[in-house]
């Protein structure tokens, strides 16, 4: 079974005067261990699609299954709990709680999952080591660079041991050095732990690393290529 299966997804935003058709019939399957980029010009529907895949929003039409669970059938509370245990998130910004240290931020999601304190501490430390900022564990986000903050966000996303991780333009605010480092870390996590990553990006450097590139335009998938050996 695929981790994600999206079938006939349409999304229309009704909030504005003129309804916006952000997605117009998307079918997509994501398998375990993928390292996939969803690319397309600004306004093409990448964020909308990721939000739906991540259970942050529901499609107007169509169904989205995550390992067989139809997200449409969950209440909003169940959905929050579902996300907590199944989906990791790395956003473009505002990822971390500014008053908590890198370690506390990482531990926070484990606390939400009710992992015992000792275990939390251990896992958080390990993950911060894995993303290469163990030495900054007791720094608050404000004392970290943008790239370091994103690495903490990746550590936190991994901490919850999700089925897959969604990252919407995670490198948009980063310089090329930090971008490379972040991509390298995510790629390594993907190789080591078979963590599944799905990005939305229009950053060429991210596309270069992706093993699968799904191209979207005007709310439709217009291309889907796989690059073995990356």
């Amino acid at each position: 079974m695929s981790i994600i299966e999206a079938k006939g997804i349409y999304k229309t935003y009704q909030e504005t005067k003129i309804p916006v058709n952000a997605l117009n019939g998307v079918d997509l399957k994501i398998e375990e261990g993928e390292f996939t980029a969803i690319v397309g010009p600004s306004g093409s529907g990448k964020t909308t699609l990721l939000n739906i895949l991540g259970g942050l929003d529901l499609p107007t039409e169509g169904d989205i299954f995550i390992e067989g669970t139809n997200l449409k059938q969950l209440s909003s509370r169940q959905l929050i709990d579902f996300r907590l245990h199944n989906i990791g998130f790395v956003f473009q910004a505002y990822n971390l709680i500014p008053v908590l240290t890198a370690r506390e931020n990482t531990e926070f999601i484990l606390e939400l999952q009710k992992v015992p304190k000792k275990e939390r501490r251990k896992q958080a430390t390990q993950l911060l080591e894995a993303v290469g900022i163990a030495d900054k564990a007791d720094h608050r986000p404000g004392q970290l660079s943008g790239g370091q903050q994103q690495r903490v966000a990746v550590a936190r996303a991994l901490a919850s041991q999700p089925r897959f991780i969604i990252a919407d333009e995670p490198t948009a605010n980063l310089d090329s050095k930090s971008t490379n480092e972040l991509l390298e870390i995510m790629a390594e996590m993907n190789r080591k732990y078979r963590s599944t990553f799905i990005f939305a990006t229009h950053d060429q450097r991210v596309m270069d690393k992706a093993r699968r590139i799904v191209t979207i335009d005007d709310g439709k998938i217009i291309g889907d290529e796989t690059f073995e050996g990356r």
Binding site: G54, L56, R77, I80, D81, R83, L84, H85, I87, G88, F89, F91, A93, Y94, N95, L96, I97, P98, I109, L112, Q113, R156, A157, S160
Partner: peptide, 14 residues
């Protein structure tokens, strides 16, 4: 509210 939106996204109950 943006941070809070992130928190709810990652699975923090309101």
């Amino acid at each position: 509210r943006k941070q809070y939106a992130v928190m709810v996204s990652i699975g923090m109950e309101r």
